[in-house]
Design a protein around this nucleic acid. Structure first.
Length: 934
DNA sequence: GACATCACG
DNA sequence: GACGTACGTGATGTCC
């Protein structure tokens, strides 16, 4: 064996182990080992990350040496200097503690050096090794995003933020700290660090600290010459706090002389030993990962017993790997009958449809795939085209070996409609609508997308690719190579049947496996009721609404488009005239240059791309002094209305039905709200008179009217209930104007002396509270000084102390559990709540808002689910949902009846699951079009 | 495909 | 007094 010595040409990777663990812990749901319930989620995530890391180690940046560095014990030499060091750290979560030693074992199993040292932080070991490697002439990459490590950067040492895949070099450090790596400790000593509880100098942040250090050169000089600082407050702080600042510096200064009992040469990259690694993974019962790694190492996957300590209600046998799956193509009735027999035997089937497009109101059914057992699925092609006879044109002839579509549908219909057989799908609303157009009412259903949504909202999206990747460790066959992209893209019926079979059958296979994974987890996550009462029953309701569509009058839109075009042309000429040159008014970039460079208007602010900001706020300010921005604002409004509404809506009118069919995504918004797409009918203009007229194009069929019912102040009512604010509850009970009441309470103005302006401010505050209020945000919204806004907020909390409590409690709950909940038990995960910096503030405000917005979303979902039965037999259809509004199309004779029944359902939608302290009230309107009904 | 802008609750 | 801020969405046009 050749002795190698670390030196020039060597590349050392140092992985911050704790960072990996915490990221893994927060990224994954609380998984447990099947056989004994040992919490194992963080270890699983840690192993996945290590595996991904090892896989990515190719090319010129590949390391020659590597180690994972961990913290050991909570008491370090820094605690001897300062007993409050890291004193505000939250305790380690209970279910993470037992996983810590396992992450060490995992590292060893991957045959990666695993280092820790009692009394020292991982950062010190990383510092020591970095220094040694640098002196030996080698290169170092520190895999971490901890800013404390930035002092080590330079002379061949870089950091790599694995999350963002971003390298941080000297320039990156300067960007973050305003000084080079050698002065980072000086800045940190002054700025302190609330996360590690390093005191620093009160009143000085990173910006100020960098300014001072750059002026004086280094911390010692600064402290010696502190008397020269101009700002009196700052000068005094530095003089008074000298000891504390010097202590802070010793706290943040990493130790490059940690006594290590190993050397760089001990960290050489080694291949893992397959037996050791696989037996560890088997012990942890990581089925997917061990299968995958076994494949890559060319070894046999270990057998993992499927014994379960607490019995669960699934009987999923160990699934074969995807590479061993059998996917067959069904060509004849006997084979299909065989599959149907198997479905009847089991009582369930995973179904997936392939079609010619994504719009289920237009797309044709191309084929159907079925799966009854993980690893065994079939595809039934229906209208695939024969292979092209030449290279230019596809054939119009059908490919051979396909059963007649009607024969297949006739055989499947009894199964798909059988109430005793569960149909499992991923985004079942899509497939249900495709089948509905073939006269098949699919029921009952389960939906893996919605199962995931109930359990994982806020963690990730719920598309099949994401779910398969995350929960099955398998990347599905991508559709892109099959269909191509851009102009040359083909539809699925042009895909050769053999390729289509592989793709389509796999989708059904994945869906079944996801279902087998998710279904038993539902009750463990305590979201069974959410799934059963708020998600699953909504599917047929939305499918009906979408298929029915809303009538839109093309002529009205077309006339408006023309009128807008004329007005825009006039404005454009005026704008060019004012600018003294022609330019593209629709280009913010060009507009910014005209305003701030050519015309020389002061106060232009550049965004992150370097272009001037020209948003509506900016232009409104400029419009008080200048004509051009005022014209641009008018032009922009018209342009928006024309392109997004009057033009685009016309293209969405379905030629068969003459109506517009939106599609609601049930699992799109994390809070439980629906989202409307293709087209979005939840953002039709209403706030301006000109925009509102677009709603005149939404009309009822002859003899019918549109009826709109909307919840009045539902989010504030829910806030009053959740935060338990007696004054707000009383105001709602008395039917008061809630914003006026707030204003009166806050500003001590009697209700009968209320002015519109005071009320407007109170209204902004009320909304601010729902959004997780901040002084800055309120100040910007009301265009008042920040100090005044903060004063409003303080006063609000004083008058309604329950709000403060609600916000604090919600934050604490989110920090502890990683999610918040609606009144109906819907969970919204907040993985970033324990992050550092601005991301945490974002997560905090979202966590405040989610239970309120989410509860309102749950309420209207409940109303919608009950609505079909409530209006059954009446000549009325529910058409649209806009978060707190439902729009109906109703025969003129039934209007009063519908309003009464729908209102009753909506106002009592929370019952009986939740008894609200505040009653919900619903306003109703009716008319020939949506503008009148609203 | 990212970004800026703007429509809604 | 420092991160950079209102919460949740989708569609459009520009520009690279």
């Amino acid at each position: 064996m050749v002795e190698t010595t670390f030196g020039k040409g060597c590349h050392l990777h140092l992985i911050d182990g704790s960072a990996f663990i915490f990221r893994a812990y927060h990224a994954l749901p609380p998984l447990t080992r099947k056989s004994d319930g040992l919490p194992i989620g963080a270890v699983a995530g840690f192993c996945n990350m290590l595996h991904r890391y090892v896989e990515g180690n190719t090319g010129p940046d590949a390391p020659t040496h590597v180690a994972v560095i961990f913290d050991k014990g909570s008491h370090t030499f820094r605690n001897d200097m300062y007993d409050l060091y890291k004193a505000n750290r939250e305790a380690m979560p209970e279910d993470l503690r037992p996983q810590m030693p396992l992450t060490r074992r995992a590292t060893e199993a991957f045959n990666i050096a695993c280092k820790e040292l009692e009394g020292f932080e991982a950062d010190d070991i990383i510092a020591t090794l970095s220094c040694q490697a640098r002196e030996a002439g080698g290169r170092v990459t520190i895999i971490s995003s901890d800013k404390d490590l930035m002092q080590l950067v330079g002379d061949g040492v870089e950091m790599l933020d694995a999350m963002k895949n971003r390298r941080i070099d000297r320039d990156g450090v300067i960007e973050k700290f305003g000084v080079g790596p050698d002065r980072v400790v000086d800045v940190q000593a002054l700025a302190g660090d609330s996360v590690d509880n390093v005191p620093g100098a009160p009143g000085i942040g990173i910006k100020t600290a960098a300014l001072l250090i750059n002026e004086f050169g280094d911390l010692e000089t600064l402290l010696d010459r502190a008397g020269e600082i101009k700002q009196p407050k700052r000068r005094q702080t530095l003089i008074d706090m000298r000891d504390q600042i010097e202590l802070s510096k010793r706290l943040v200064q990493l130790d490059c002389d940690t006594p290590l009992d190993f050397g760089l040469d001990d960290l050489e990259v080694r291949d893992p030993d397959p037996d050791t690694l696989l037996s560890f993974l088997a012990e942890m019962e990581f089925r997917t990962l061990s299968r995958r790694i076994a494949d890559q190492l060319g070894a046999e996957a270990p057998v993992i017993e499927d014994k379960v300590a607490p019995p669960t209600d699934t009987d999923a046998p160990e699934a074969p790997s995807f590479s061993d799956a059998t996917y067959t193509c069904v060509h004849d009735a006997e084979t299909l009958q065989d599959w149907i027999d198997q479905i009847r035997e089991r009582g369930w089937v995973a179904v997936d449809t392939e079609t010619t497009g994504l719009n289920e109101m237009i797309a044709d059914l191309v084929g159907i795939s079925l799966c009854v057992e993980a690893g065994r699925a079939c595809y039934i092609p229906l209208i695939h085209k024969a292979a092209a006879t030449d290279d230019l044109f596809g054939s119009d002839d059908l490919a051979e070996g396909q059963m007649a579509p009607q024969t297949v549908l006739n055989l499947l219909k009894p199964v798909l409609e059988d109430p005793a057989i569960l149909k499992i799908g991923q985004n079942m609303k899509y497939d249900a609508k495709i089948f509905a157009r073939q006269g098949i009412e699919v029921a009952p259903i389960d939906d893996t997308m919605l199962l995931s949504y109930a359990m994982h909202a806020g963690l990730h999206n719920h598309g099949m690719d994401t779910l398969s990747e995350r929960y099955l460790g398998h990347t599905p066959i991508p559709i892109k190579p099959l269909l191509g992209s851009g102009k040359s893209a083909i539809t699925f019926d042009k895909v050769p049947v053999d390729k289509a079979t592989e793709y389509a059958a796999e989708d059904a296979d994945i869906t079944l496996r996801l279902w087998q994974t998710f279904k038993p987890q539902l009750h463990r996550n305590q979201v069974t009721t959410v799934y059963e009462t708020l998600e699953r029953p909504l599917v047929p309701v939305l499918a009906q609404m979408e298929m029915h569509g809303v009538k839109i009058d093309r002529d009205t839109l077309s006339r408006m488009s023309n009128a807008f075009a004329q007005k825009m042309a006039g404005l454009e000429a005026e704008i060019h005239d004012l600018a003294g040159e022609t330019f593209n008014v629709g280009s913010p970039k060009q507009l910014g240059e005209i305003l701030f460079d050519k015309m020389g208007i002061e106060g232009g602010k550049r965004g992150k791309t370097g272009a001037y900001a020209t948003g509506v706020d900016v232009l409104e300010d400029l419009a008080t002094e200048h004509d051009l921005p005022a014209r641009v604002l008018d032009w922009r409004q018209l342009s928006k209305l024309k392109s997004t509404y009057t033009d685009a809506l016309q293209t969405h009118i379905n030629p068969d039905t003459g109506r517009v069919h939106t599609s609601y995504s049930i699992a799109g918004a994390s809070t439980g709200r629906l989202a409307s797409t293709d087209p979005n009918l939840q953002n039709i203009p209403v706030r301006t008179e000109e925009g509102r007229r677009i709603r005149e194009a939404f009309v009822a069929e002859p003899g019918n009217v549109l009826v709109s019912l909307d919840y009045s102040q539902i989010e504030l009512r829910i806030l009053a209930h959740i935060a338990n604010i007696p004054a707000l509850k009383q105001a709602f009970a008395d039917g008061l104007d809630i914003h006026a009441m707030t204003a009166s309470e806050m500003f001590d103005v009697p209700l009968d002396e209320m002015t519109p302006d005071i009320r407007r401010q109170a209204k902004a505050i009320n909304f601010g509270v729902i959004y997780g209020i901040s002084g800055f945000g309120l100040a910007r919204n009301l265009r008042i000084p920040r100090s005044q806004a903060q004063g409003f907020i303080d006063r609000y909390f004083e008058r309604f102390p329950g709000i403060r409590t609600y916000m604090d409690d919600t934050k604490a709950f989110a920090k502890e559990h990683g999610f918040v909940q609606t009144l109906f038990g819907r969970k919204i995960h907040t993985p970033e709540i324990n992050a550092k910096g601005p991301r945490a503030s974002f997560a905090y405000r979202a966590a405040i808002n989610a239970p309120i917005q989410g509860t309102a979303a749950d309420v209207i979902r409940r109303a919608m689910i009950r609505m079909p039965a409530a209006i059954d037999g009446l000549p009325a259809r529910m058409l649209l949902q806009v978060h707190d509004e439902l729009l109906f199309e109703v025969a003129e004779t039934a209007v009063d009846d519908i309003i009464a029944r729908a209102r009753d359902i909506m106002e009592n939608a929370a019952d009986p699951a939740v008894r609200l302290d505040v009653k919900l009230t619903v306003d109703a309107g009716q008319g020939a079009n949506w503008a009148q009904a609203h």
